[in-house]
Amino acid sequence: MSDRVKFSNVKKRAAKDKIVFGLVCLFSFLSMIPLFLIIWEVVSKGYKNFNWRLFTQVAPSSMDALIAKMSGEPIPGGILNGITGTILIVGMAVLFTIPLGLFVGIYLSEHPENKFARTVSYLTDLLQGMPSIVIGIIAYIWVVKPLRSYSALAGSVALTIMMLPMVVRSTEETLKMLPRTLKESGLALGASYTSVIFRVILPSGFGGIFTGILLAVSRVMGETAPLMLTALGATVVNWNILKPTSAIPLLIWDFYNDPNLVDIIWSASLLLLIVIFLLNWIAKIVARRWKI
C-alpha cells in the first residue's frame, strides 16, 4: 500500500466549512430578530398609555375615544375589564386544571406499561395538538349553548382543555424522573400510598410540576380565538362567572377592529407581553431552583 490517496481539495473544503459555519450563525442571528422587533414595536408604541389609568378604568367606548381624539386629548379609559376578566377566566381554568392534570399525570407515571394508561397518554397528545379554535367550538357547544349565554365559565372550560395536556405531560415527565427508591423507601416505612404520593413524591417533583403549570398559564394567557367563541367580551367589569366577560386579548381584538381605539392597543399588548415573559422567567427560575 505505497500509493497514497490524492487529496487536492483541502483548502476549498476548509473554506466551504467556514462558509457553512458563517451561514449557520448568520441565520440563527436573523431568527432572533423578529422577537426584538416585536418587543420594540410594542414597547415603543405602548409605553405612552402604560399608566395607572390602564389598570383602573374600563375600556373606553368608541364614541368617547372619538370625542377625545377630536379635541386632541389622549383617549380615556384603560383595560380594567380585561384585566379582571383574564384573572377570573384564567384563575378558574387553573383551579379546574391543577387537580385533574396532577391526578392524570400521577396515574400515567405510576402505570407506564398499562394499556389503558397508554391510550390516555395518546389521547393527551391528541388534545395537545388540537387547534385552539376547535377547543373554542367545543366549549361553545358544551357550555354556552346549554346555558344560553356566553360566559366566563365557558372561557375557563376552553382554557382548561388547552392547559390540561400540558400539565399532564409536565407532571408525568417530572414524576418519571424521580428515582423509584424514593417511593419504595416511603412505602417500606409503613406510610400509606396516599401519603407517600402527597408527602414524598409530589413535593420532590414540585419544581417540574410548578414550572409546567406556569408555562401552561403563560401559553393560554394570550389566547384569543377560543375566548371569542365563549367569553365573548364585556364593556364592564364582571365577576359573575355566568355572564359574558372580557379579557385582555379580547380587548386587543376589539381595539384592533375599532380605528378610534387603536391608541390603547399597544399598552394592552405590552401588559400582556410583560405578564407572559414574567411567567416564563419565573418558570425558568423555579425549574433551576428545584431541579431534581
Binding site: S31, T224, I276
Partner: peptide
C-alpha cells in the same frame, strides 16, 4: 441564550403577531 430567545417567540400571543404583521 439563543434557544431562550427563540423559545420566547413561542410565548408571544398569536394576536400580538397579528398586530406586528398588520402594522410592520
Amino acid at each position: 441564550f439563543v434557544s431562550s430567545v427563540v423559545d420566547l417567540l413561542a410565548g408571544i400571543p398569536s394576536i400580538v403577531y397579528g398586530l406586528w404583521g398588520f402594522y410592520t
